[in-house]
Write a protein that binds this DNA or RNA. Structure first.
Lengths: 211, 211
DNA sequence: CCGCAAAGTGGAACGTGTTTCATTTTTGCA
DNA sequence: TGCAAAAATGAAACACGTTCCACTTTGCGG
């Protein structure tokens, strides 16, 4: 669960709040995240909670950011196996999917929060998409991608090309839409994987011929 | 706005409720759809509203279904112009996007409702995706697609092939994800169109070479 | 035409997200 | 060390989704 994050902005209180949120959402989903309970369990007053987070959705998007950050760290340590980009990308999305389905209540709650449409969430959502994009590019390449925020000049990883960015974005959008369908009860693990296999075949075949 | 629908199941009361929902959502978005107001404005009691719709989200998904049904009727009357599939598909998504952005509050509210993740909404969501898929296939072909529910054997339109279905599904997923990003404040009309142009190029190029 | 079951009504009541406020605690700095 | 500003507290208040209930209306088979 990666209890420490590299982000120094995430100080004690905020982290406790987010961790409580995750805990409650894991157990009972979106409705189980009762802000009074979150505050009590995290040992803060409602006012404090609302000083840090604008709304319940903000809280869950922060949880998503938190989880994704932890995941990116894990993914970056152990590059994905697979000779072809298609294999690596499928392995990567399979891993993401397994991660989500392992805690379905939490995942549904976080997905729901992303669709709230509040402008205040835009920044956090952007960050999330950015991280997802980097991980997908890493899977395409089979090598980690340099993050601008951390270790600004460690290994001289190649710039992300426009084409890489396009392919990664499109794959992420597809995966995200499929996960939303799963959250809505329209897909199960098998059909998610099947859809990603089909979509990845379609798109990466095109990409390979282009290059 | 297509005030009459071909669905006879949508009887008077339910339709008034949905129309009121749309009206209120257009003005003030998700929060402006106060169920007390919906009931009062539609001339029914709360109990009646809750007999027809399980929740606020159910109401907004019903509105989405209603609007999409009306749109499909309009789209089917006037097939899309354009020599290549790419052009037609882009014209189609451009039209969808314009339709959404014309009533941003309503659109955001409906999108948000789709992500609620309640299993009770699965059927309505499935219907929505089905309609969207048919319209996309029609755009790919440049000709209307037969609907199984209405006029079961009117013009002998070709069966939808697996490949068509895959391409249409993927394009719809991308568009849907992009619209969610728009709803979250991460995209504007220009960037939506740019993204769809890039994605469509990527995918339809692959499709053409496959066939 | 009767009577009953289903649907609708009006409104109260409940839970939870969000806001507010008077008071207390913490923090940064002269 | 002392003090003003910022942050936190605890609790009450409010709004709105949702549920419940006692009563009325509607529709329909006998």
């Amino acid at each position: 669960m990666a209890t420490q994050t590299s982000d120094p902005l995430l100080e004690e209180r905020a982290r406790r709040i987010i961790e409580t949120t995750i805990e409650l959402a894991e157990k009972g989903g979106f409705e189980a995240v009762r802000l009074r309970d979150v505050a009590a369990h995290a040992g803060v007053a409602m006012g404090t909670l609302y000083r840090r987070f604008r709304s319940k959705e903000d809280l869950l998007v922060a949880a998503l950011e938190f989880e994704t950050r932890a995941l990116e760290e894990r993914v970056n340590e152990r590059p994905l196996e697979g000779a072809h980009a298609t294999e690596r990308v499928l392995a990567y999305f399979g891993m993401q999917t397994r991660g989500m389905l392992r805690r379905p209540n939490l995942s549904r709650a976080m997905l729901r929060a992303t669709a709230a449409g509040e402008p205040a969430l835009a920044q956090k959502l952007g960050l999330f998409h950015e991280m997802m994009g980097r991980m997908t590019v890493a899977a395409l390449r089979g090598a980690p991608v340099a993050r601008p925020d951390v270790e600004p000049n460690d290994p001289p990883a190649a710039e992300i090309s426009e084409h890489e960015k396009l392919v990664a974005t499109v794959l992420n959008q597809i995966w995200f839409a499929v996960m939303l369908s799963w959250a809505g009860g329209l897909e199960d693990q098998a059909s998610i994987n099947e859809r990603m296999r089909a979509a990845t075949g379609l798109i990466l075949d095109a990409a390979e011929r282009d290059s």
